[in-house]
Every structure is written in structure tokens, then in C-alpha cells.
Amino acid sequence: MSEEKLYSLRNPWFSISVGITVAIAVLSAVAGLIWFPLLQPNLKLSGIWDAICSAAGVPGLSTQAGAVPPAFKTSNVVMTPEMLTRQDQVSIGRGATLAQRCAICHGPQGVSDANSPNLAGQYAAVTYKELNDFKTGARVNVVMTPFAANMTDQEMRDVALYYAYLPRVPSSLVNPNLTPPAIVVTGAPMRNIPPCGSCHGEIDVKAGSPWLGGQSAVYIKAQLQAFASGARRNDISEQMRNVARQMTAEEIDQVARYYEAQP
């Protein structure tokens, strides 16, 4: 057996198997890369090379040319899971001084009953993003916009890290025994609503999603309504607008009351 030469065109096993393999590969390539694309009128191909590039998946320029710029400002913050997760004592110290001017609404300890968001223990990346969006105009609020307008990037980081450093304080309405509404635990798959808890805690926490426990129900409700109406649109990839639009008024109320009662 050993004297038989395998790698020779005279060996039928070699020539036939290689021949068939090459023939199938070439035929399928010709059909898939040239013939079928040319059969499709909607592809508007200019020739064989264009057909090959199109079918092989070479990225074309045409897809980028057609992008329509939005009529409003979008957030320019690039959110990553690591963003502002390291504690920096100097930064926190500076943030504590800067936060004096926030205290009138957000409370000296980052908690207040003024129906403005409680910032104590909020993820730094979240506070930073909102400040940035107020500054760039991606999010608009008559009170917050002027405050953020003159802040530098470092100042926004400092304030955000300071509030993240403060301990969370449970609100006076805390009631951990409250049954979570279905929308928080299971979402509504048929309306394309994922569970609130899959990003905002309980089930999982996703980068950029604020901690909602203990936030004022009035505030949560107002924000969901703003997302639903399109008045607020600084959410990444329209995630919250898509969710809020599909929520019923009753669900919005339930969610607001539920998160207010969470620690």
C-alpha cells in the first residue's frame, strides 16, 4: 500500500476528490458571488466586480451617504461599563465643594423631598451623563441647563463621583414588601418592553441605567411621560422612548410608586 503515490494527478482518488471539491467551490462562488446578485434588479450593480463586492459583503459608501442627521441634539457621551467606576478621593473632595450649589434642590446629603432626583449613591456615570447632556442641550430643563452650561468636564466628573460616594438613604415611603408590578419583573414581551429590572437593578444593572430605588414617584412619572411624548430624548439608542411609548398610564403609575418604595 505504501508504494502507491497519493499526491499525484495519476491517482484517481486524488484527482477526482480535489477536482470535485474545487469544482463545487468554484461553481458555488460563481453562482453566489456573480450570477445570483446580477439576477436581482434592485441591487443596481454596475458590473461583475461590483456584484462580487456586493455579495462578498464589502461595505459600500452608499449606506453612509443616506443617513439623515436628526433635527435635535443627541447625547455625545460614550457610555462604557467601566466609566467613572474608580473612586478618586481628590475628585470627591472637589465634588463636595461644587455640590454646595446643587443642595438647594437635591438636598445637602443628596436626598430631598423636593421631587427632584435623589443623587446620593447614584452611579457616577449616570449623573455625569445627565450633566453633560444638559450642557450640550441633548436634555433641556429650565433649572438644570443654566447650572450645567458653565461646568467643565472635570467639574461634572467631580460632582458625579461625589454623589456616587454618598450613601443611599431610603425614602420615608420605603416598603420592601410591596409586590413588584409585572412590568418590572417580566416586562411585556408582546409590546417589546423588557423588564425594568433587567437594566435598573434587581435582575441586572446595565451601564448608563440609573438606580431608581427611593426616587420620587412624581419625578419618575414625569420622566416616563416625557420619554413617551418625545419631550425628552437623550436616552441612548432611543431605549427609554421605545419602552415608555408602549407603557400604559396605569403601568407608569405602578412603576413610579414601586420604585419610590424601594430602598
Partner: peptide, 17 residues
């Protein structure tokens, strides 16, 4: 979306084999 339709066809042919 990141793989071209022509290459998907080639893989389909070999899957048949």
C-alpha cells in the same frame, strides 16, 4: 448583516453536501 449574501450561499451549498 456582517457576512455577505454570496458567502452565505456558498456555505449553504456545502451544508447541503
Amino acid at each position: 448583516p456582517q457576512v455577505g449574501a454570496g458567502l452565505k450561499f456558498m456555505h449553504s451549498v456545502f451544508t447541503g453536501l
